[in-house]
């Protein structure tokens, strides 16, 4: 297995496709989390089309790279990237949150291929990713484990339990990406329960930290695609992002955490997401 090695332009095109699909899914259902979908989209597209090694037709390969969507509410983005990567047919996206759909509001690994663990309640992804990384080390497999967390999500203590353990274990093949859009459900992270200086926090827990523009595909490729080498630390990528990225009236607005567009807003957003 090797990464798909899409070009940056190709990855940006995939991200545009994902945003348009997420928008339609949430508009059709009048339910979802577009703000967090859009802040995470470029990160997901970079991972699936430029970094990770996997075979969507054989999703259980022991040596595959793993991705854990810890911010499990951002299924508009997550299901879109899985469909784009070929885990399931694109037309399934139109069943998003419909009765008995495999596309539940939060991901279930027993419903769809490509989902490593069930998420939804926050702070669950990093501990599970830690276990996957430990298993890889025990089995002498060189797969990498990536976990995407929200930033507000880091207020959950379980993340820091796992971060401490990962640092102590020198798990170089574990990467956490923080979708640092600085907004949580109702307000800014810093006015709710501040996280800064987030980089120092991870360093203090034994992690190597990189800061990156989470919408700059070239920069994401450089940081996430770099070989693990002899770094004896887990990697934390703080991806500075914009909640609602790509739609002018959604950007940096907490109300678009789970806001749903009207018909006029839907048309306007589609125009902006060409």
């Amino acid at each position: 297995m090797s990464p798909l090695n899409d070009t940056a332009a190709g990855i940006r095109a995939k991200a545009g496709w994902m945003r348009r699909h997420a928008l339609k899914m949430v508009y059709d259902k009048q339910l979802g989390h577009l703000g967090g979908d859009f802040s995470a989209t470029d990160i997901l597209a970079t991972l699936y089309f430029g970094v990770m090694r996997y075979d969507a037709k054989t999703p259980g390969l022991p040596g595959r790279d793993r991705f854990i969507m810890s911010k499990g509410h951002a299924t508009g983005a997550f299901y879109s990237v899985l469909a784009a990567a070929g885990y399931f047919p694109e037309d399934w996206l139109s069943t998003y949150m419909q009765p008995n759909s495999k596309l539940n509001g939060h991901p279930n690994r027993n419903y769809l291929p490509g989902i490593e663990t069930n998420t939804g309640p926050l702070g669950h992804g990093l501990p599970v990713a830690l276990g996957i990384a430990i298993a890889g080390k025990l089995s002498r497999l060189d797969y990498r484990t990536f976990v995407l967390t929200g930033d507000g999500e880091l207020q959950e203590g379980s993340n820091w339990e796992a971060a401490m353990s990962a640092g102590n274990r020198h798990l170089s093949h574990l990467t956490v990406i923080v979708d640092r859009n600085r907004l949580q459900q109702g307000a800014g992270t810093e006015e709710t329960n501040g996280l800064d200086p987030l980089d120092d926090k991870f360093r203090a827990f034994g992690w190597h930290v990189e800061m990156v523009d989470g919408h700059d595909v070239e920069a994401l490729l450089a940081v996430l695609g770099a070989p693990v080498g002899d770094r004896r630390k887990p990697l934390c990528v703080i991806a500075n992002t914009v909640k609602g990225k790509g739609v002018s009236f959604m950007e940096n607005k907490a109300m678009w955490h789970h806001g749903v567009p009207s018909a006029a807003q839907y048309e306007q957003a589609l125009k902006e997401l060409v």
């Binding site: 022991p62 793993r66 490593e116 663990t117 702070g123 669950h124 990093l126 501990p127 599970v128 990713a129 830690l130 276990g131 996957i132 990384a133 430990i134 298993a135 890889g136 025990l138 089995s139 497999l141 203590g157 379980s158 339990e161 796992a162 353990s165």
Partner: peptide, 14 residues
């Protein structure tokens, strides 16, 4: 919390 989460991760890793 990590105790149980790590268990789930280890199972994922075979």
């Amino acid at each position: 919390q990590t105790l149980v989460g790590v268990g789930a991760g280890l199972a994922n890793g075979g």
